[in-house]
Amino acid sequence: MDPIRDVAALRQMLAGLEAARLPGVEPSFSLGAAGPAAGGVCLARGALHEVQAACSADLPAAAGFALALALRALQTADAGERRPLLWVRQDLAEAEFGRLDAPGIAALGLDPARLLVVRARDGAEVLRAAGDAVRCAGLGALLIETWGTPKALDLTATRRLALRAASSGVTSFLLHMAAQAAPTAVATRWRVAPAASAPLEGDAPGAPSFHATLLRHRGGAGGVRPVEGGDWKLEWDHEACTFRDLDPLPRAVVPVPAGRPDGAGAQEARRGEVVALRRAG
C-alpha cells in the first residue's frame, strides 16, 4: 500500500531481529573512559533508565547527568549522531529552575539544533507526551522530566514506557526527584548529586561533576555482572563525550582534541620493555 510505511515496518522488524547481532549497533553503552569499577557498567540501549535527584536542589545536576547519559547512548549508536533528542519538561520544573538554554546544552556537547523541547502542564501530560514520543523510532533519545513524582508515574506506566522503548529502540531517561520513591520498572536507577569539581587553573570550577549511585541494575546487560550499589564520583568530558573518574586533586588542564591518535601512550608502553644488550669487547 504505502511503500514508505512498509519499508519502515520492515526496517523495524529487521532491527528487532538483528539488534543483538549487528556489529555496528551494540545493544548497550557504557559510561566511557571512567575507571574500572564504573567503566564496567553497561546500560541497555532501547530501555528506560531512571535518574533521581538526591534532593530537589540537585535536579539541575541530575538533568545534566541524564543528558550526558543520553549523549553516551547516542554517540555509539548507528546513525544516532543525527537523530534528534526530545526533552519533555513539566512547567513546574521550568518555573523552579529556569528555562533550558542553548549555549548550556552546547556546553554539554549536544548541538542545540538537535534538541526538541516539549512543555507539559502536569505529570499526566508529561507521561502522555512521553508515551507518544517513545514510540517514534526516529528519535535518538528521550528525556522525561517530571516535578516530584506524579501519581500517574507508577509501575504500570513505567512498564509501558519500558516496553515501548524496547520495541522502538528509543533510549529513554526518566528524570525526577527522589522525594517519594515509587516502584518503577526501569533497567537502571541512578541517584545523582553534584560533586565538588576538579578545579581548573586559578581555582575555577571545573567540568560538570556528579556523585552517582547505581541503585538498581537489571540483568547487567552485555554479560557483565550487576554492580548495584556502586557509588562513583564522575566528571563529564564534553569534548570526548565520555565520563571520567573525578580526580579530586588540582591538575593542569590541557584540552585533548577528541580525534587525536593514541601515539604517545604506545611509546610509553615500549619504554618499559627489556632490550637485550651485548657487552662490547
Binding site: P103, G104, I105
Partner: peptide, 12 residues
C-alpha cells in the same frame, strides 16, 4: 560555537 563551547549554564 562548537569549538569554544563556553561554560554556560544549562538553565537560565
Amino acid at each position: 560555537s562548537a569549538a569554544e563551547a563556553l561554560a554556560r549554564p544549562l538553565t537560565l
